[in-house]
Computed example of a mutant assay.
Amino acid sequence: MGHRTLVAYDRDGYDLHYAHWGVDPADLTPETPFGGPPDDGTVRERAADLLDPSGGRLTDERRTAVDPDPLATGLTFEEACARLDPVEHEALYVVDPDFAVRRYLVFALRDDRAGPRTALVGYDDARDAAYLRGWLAGARAVRAVAAPAPGAVLAALRWLDPGRGTVVYPLDDERGA
Score class of each variant (00 low, 15 high):
Asp85Asn: 14
Leu84Lys: 00
Leu51Ala: 14
Glu61Met: 11
Phe107Ile: 04
Pro30Cys: 04
Gly74Asn: 10
Leu105Ala: 14
Glu90Asn: 07
Arg102Asp: 09
Asp125Gln: 08
Pro86Phe: 07
Glu90Arg: 09
Arg63Phe: 05
Cys81His: 05
Leu75Tyr: 13
Arg110Asn: 05
Arg83Glu: 15
Arg102Thr: 13
Arg83Ser: 10
Pro53Cys: 09
Ala91Thr: 07
Phe99Gln: 10
Gly55Val: 11
Gly36Trp: 04
Cys81Gly: 05
Pro86Gln: 11
Arg110Ala: 07
Thr118Asp: 01
Val106Ala: 02
Glu78Phe: 02
Gly55Pro: 14
Asp125Cys: 06
Glu90Thr: 02
Arg57Leu: 14
Val106Met: 03
His89Ile: 06
Leu71Arg: 13
Ala72Cys: 08
Arg46Ile: 08
Gly74Cys: 13
Arg117Glu: 11
Val121Asn: 07
Thr29His: 06
Tyr104Ile: 03
Leu75Met: 12
Val66Trp: 00
Ala80Tyr: 00
Glu31Tyr: 02
Cys81Thr: 00
Glu45Arg: 15
Val94Asn: 00
Val95Trp: 03
Leu120Ile: 13
Pro68Val: 15
Asp27Leu: 11
Glu78Tyr: 02
Ala108Pro: 03
Gly35Glu: 08
Ala47Thr: 12
Arg62Thr: 01
Ala126Thr: 08
Tyr104Val: 01
Thr76Ala: 12
Pro70Trp: 00
Pro70Cys: 06
